[in-house]
Design a protein around this nucleic acid. Structure first.
Lengths: 187, 187
DNA sequence: TCCATCATGTAAACAGTTACATGATTGC
DNA sequence: GCAATCATGTAACTGTTTACATGATGGA
């Protein structure tokens, strides 16, 4: 059995938690997640679910009581197995380094901004991160108390936001310290 | 002018730092980055560079002294401008939340593993993260001392690795505390 | 001379986005 | 009755990956 892609793994994981649930609910969870990367777009989710169903990792059953043609998703035993393989593939394939942070990426290229723009960039990012951190905290508090791993995952989001805030503060500190040098003067 | 995609922004940023440089050097920097998401694959980079050249954000000049048909890349004034717009788009478009971490993603679904597998997962991840952290530290030390933003970007990678290590330790702590409950017994 | 690295590129496949399209249900 | 949300899906496009393909250079 092939290893699931990231989005497929997440999808099977979410369905496992909420089954039986609709594709719409799955999309909503992806969209509403404070730190997300995926849009939960219909064009990604529906073909993905078709794929998973064809491979018998999920089953769908039509809900005849619903006029909207609602279909309820559940994970099969093979699907649970695939989820476990996907979990383990993180360490088996050394994918631990596959992180992505659009802020850190940009810090490498701060040189391309004028000094004034650098400070603006850092200050705006700082304030955006402060509200983002707050949203991860709200998300964390709004969870049901009995779901340890849901809590830990969300807790990871908050820890990460705190870490990035600390990082941008460090950047700002360096920018203010070097108050004469650096920076492109073309701004 | 359209806003550059993430990989395009990174590419223009790297070329700006090293110009004039070859596409190969750009690909190498992407491949060798300790925390990367992008493979620097030929099929991504060459079409991307064609695109940027067509839009006059970069120029290429053939190096006639090189038998391999080496082409040297440089960023134009319009390219520098595009890089600045891309930098600012982080805050203008509220993309600060677009982070991705395959470890955190999986923690949400630890429930799908048996208790033994959960511990294995966390312990293996912990040790993988320890060596990853070490590699980010080496990367940080190996930088030229005069490049502040290169230093800060790499420093962000180390901070992030430390943060994730702290996170997995917290997860492990919870797993060990709850030593009877939780976990799928089907392992 | 051989091998690792430098150097460029193409083709097929796959994944994900935006935009479009339709219709039912629920609460005000 | 109207609007927000629930619910499913398709089409065109874009970007990225893997695999393939070729050849030059430099050092042991």
């Amino acid at each position: 059995m092939r290893i699931l892609s990231e989005l497929e793994g997440v999808a099977v994981g979410i369905i496992t938690k909420h089954q039986p649930c609709t594709a719409y609910a799955l999309r909503k969870e992806l969209k509403d997640s404070p730190s997300s990367h995926w849009r939960g777009s219909a064009g990604a989710i529906y073909p993905l679910l078709e794929r998973l169903e064809k491979e018998k990792l999920i089953t769908t059953s039509a809900d005849s009581s619903d006029g909207r043609g609602r279909r309820l998703l559940s994970v099969t035993t093979a699907g649970k197995q695939a989820l476990r393989s996907w979990m383990r593939a993180l360490n088996d394939n050394n994918r631990i380094a596959e992180v992505f942070d659009p802020l850190r990426t940009r810090v490498f290229f701060l040189d391309s901004l004028s000094r004034k723009e650098q400070l603006e960039f850092a200050e705006q990012t700082l304030s955006a991160l402060e509200s983002y951190l707050e949203s991860t905290r709200i998300h964390l508090e709004d969870r049901p108390g009995n779901d340890l791993f849901g809590y830990l995952g969300a807790r990871g989001g908050t820890l990460n936001a705190e870490n990035r805030l600390e990082f941008i503060r460090e950047v700002l500190h360096h920018l203010r310290k070097n108050n004469g040098g650096g920076g492109n003067r073309s701004g």
